[in-house]
Design a protein around this nucleic acid. Structure first.
Length: 261
DNA sequence: AGTACCACCTGACGGC
DNA sequence: TGCCGTCAGGTGGTAC
């Protein structure tokens, strides 16, 4: 699930729950998720500090450890999410990492499939640079967007390429192309100026609307393809049957009549 | 530079 | 009901 809109929703969730409380303990159950930091080091930097600012870049969430100055890095893989709670009855089944606060509440990082990532960085900008991530998908003007998607290959693959533009995954890639009425296998380098312009606008539109809907498919605009990406699903625009193909190895849903090649 | 696979994990779902 | 294959919204590695 976690693409840019989902991670933005996690960010706001954390902002509204877990800030400004003293961290008493940190534990990481799933050691394989740690990258570039040990559980002990992470705990040492976090203990006694408070979560201050949060930042998001693409699918990454950064949480500042106030006082220490470093930032916890979180990536949610395919199934990760955050849960803040006090009562054990609210605990998620999987607890890959946990921050325990002085007031008894906990912030749990849950990633059932264990595909995520937990790290520590001096500052988000250097992290983004070192990882070679492109600009955030919500932070490009038309010229920068044009540069980001320029190149060979299918447009959908370009949109999902985190080194070119960060934050778009399989689902929202499909949604953006559907809204822009562009075939997922269209050659990125052969899009017309008008198509690039549409794609740029729909990228912001789709991501922003998804955030407004709390990244919950049930709350998204009626015009969205997202809830219909399944066998027998109907296009919300023309009512025709949606179709799935593989693009770059990923299952891709689109409407063959609204998105011609 | 692309693409095509495989791998990492766990859970859900359809078919038998 | 139970077992089994397949697939899933991410990323990283390999080989062509």
């Amino acid at each position: 699930m976690p693409e840019l809109p989902d991670v933005e929703v996690f960010k706001r969730y954390l902002d509204s729950t877990a800030l400004n409380q003293r961290i008493d303990a940190v534990s990481v159950e799933a050691k394989r998720l740690l990258k570039g930091v040990s559980a002990a080091t992470l705990a040492r930097h976090a203990k006694g500090q408070r979560f201050g600012a949060t930042r998001r870049h693409g699918k990454y969430l950064f949480v500042e450890l106030e006082g220490d100055g470093r930032w916890v890095v979180l990536h949610f893989g395919m199934t990760g999410f955050l849960k803040y709670y006090k009562d054990e009855s609210e605990a998620p089944e999987h607890r890959e990492a946990e921050f325990r606060f002085a007031d008894g509440y906990r912030l749990v990082y849950s990633a059932p499939r264990k595909f995520g990532r937990i790290g520590l960085t001096d500052d988000p900008e250097s992290f983004v640079e070192e990882e070679g991530l492109g600009p955030d998908a919500l932070d490009l003007d038309l010229a920068a967007f044009r540069d980001a998607i320029a190149g060979r290959g299918a447009i959908k693959s370009r949109l999902m390429k985190q080194e070119a533009l960060a934050g778009i995954g399989n689902v929202y890639g499909d949604e953006i192309l559907f809204q822009a009425k562009i075939h997922p296998q269209a050659a990125a380098g052969k899009l017309s100026d008008d198509e690039v312009k549409r794609l740029h606008r729909k990228t912001s539109d789709v991501l922003e609307r998804a955030i407004d809907a709390q990244a919950d498919p049930a709350r998204m605009p009626k015009s969205f393809l997202l809830p219909h990406r399944e066998q027998g699903g109907r296009c919300p625009r023309c009512g025709g049957k949606v179709r799935s193909i593989k693009v770059g190895g990923r299952t891709t849903w689109f409407c063959p009549s609204c998105q011609k090649r």
